[in-house]
Amino acid sequence: MTSARWLDPEERQAWLALLAVTTLLPGNLDGALQREAKVTLFDYNVLAMLSEAEDRSLPMSELASRTYSSLSRLSHVVKKLELRGWVKRSPCAEDARVTMATLTEDGYSAIEQLAPAHVESVRDAVFDGLDHKDIADLERLGKKIVQRLEPSSWVLREPRINS
């Protein structure tokens, strides 16, 4: 039996802080979206990823990658969003084996209505307490962790947008 590589005190404090963020943040952001439109943070993220895609459409496999979900979980959520008239699925024109998810006009309207309050919740929960260096550090550290967990992540390929 091998001995555990225990965390040193500094690593333990960093781990507990990260664990607290990953535990508290989704519930905090979910709450506002649930009150506003009865959607979860994951639902919102699916809509947001489609709204940012070319033609507001993505193959389901790419959408799963961008939302860090399994195809099974994504299919369940897309079905729920289809019932609301916000997303539609269809075969890909170039390859019928591929299923495309497309944001409908009603879905685009929904994300437009939700986005201002959601971004304000994100600012309040995360960014208002950080300075520019903290934000750059958060991006750098987040991407480093994602690289270990999901090396092919789209976030690692996305160019940084300068404002």
Score class of each variant (00 low, 15 high):
1 M>L: 12
5 R>G: 07
7 L>W: 07
11 E>I: 04
13 Q>W: 09
13 Q>D: 14
13 Q>M: 13
15 W>I: 10
16 L>M: 13
17 A>L: 07
20 A>T: 13
20 A>F: 12
22 T>Y: 12
29 L>W: 03
30 D>Y: 04
30 D>G: 08
34 Q>S: 12
34 Q>M: 14
35 R>G: 11
36 E>H: 13
37 A>W: 05
38 K>S: 15
41 L>R: 09
43 D>E: 10
44 Y>H: 04
44 Y>S: 00
47 L>K: 01
48 A>H: 04
51 S>Y: 00
55 D>F: 05
57 S>P: 01
58 L>C: 07
59 P>C: 07
60 M>D: 08
62 E>D: 11
68 Y>E: 07
69 S>W: 05
69 S>E: 05
74 L>T: 06
75 S>R: 08
77 V>C: 00
79 K>W: 10
81 L>G: 03
84 R>V: 04
84 R>F: 03
85 G>L: 07
86 W>P: 00
86 W>A: 02
87 V>M: 06
88 K>D: 14
89 R>K: 15
93 A>E: 15
95 D>S: 08
95 D>T: 02
95 D>L: 07
96 A>H: 12
97 R>K: 15
97 R>W: 05
101 A>G: 02
101 A>Y: 04
101 A>C: 14
106 D>V: 04
106 D>G: 03
106 D>P: 01
112 E>D: 08
114 L>Y: 07
118 H>M: 09
119 V>A: 11
121 S>P: 01
128 D>I: 05
129 G>C: 10
130 L>E: 00
130 L>H: 06
131 D>S: 07
132 H>T: 11
134 D>S: 05
136 A>N: 06
136 A>E: 15
140 R>C: 09
141 L>T: 12
143 K>D: 07
143 K>P: 02
143 K>Q: 02
145 I>L: 15
149 L>A: 14
150 E>A: 14
154 W>F: 11
157 R>M: 06
158 E>H: 09
163 S>C: 10
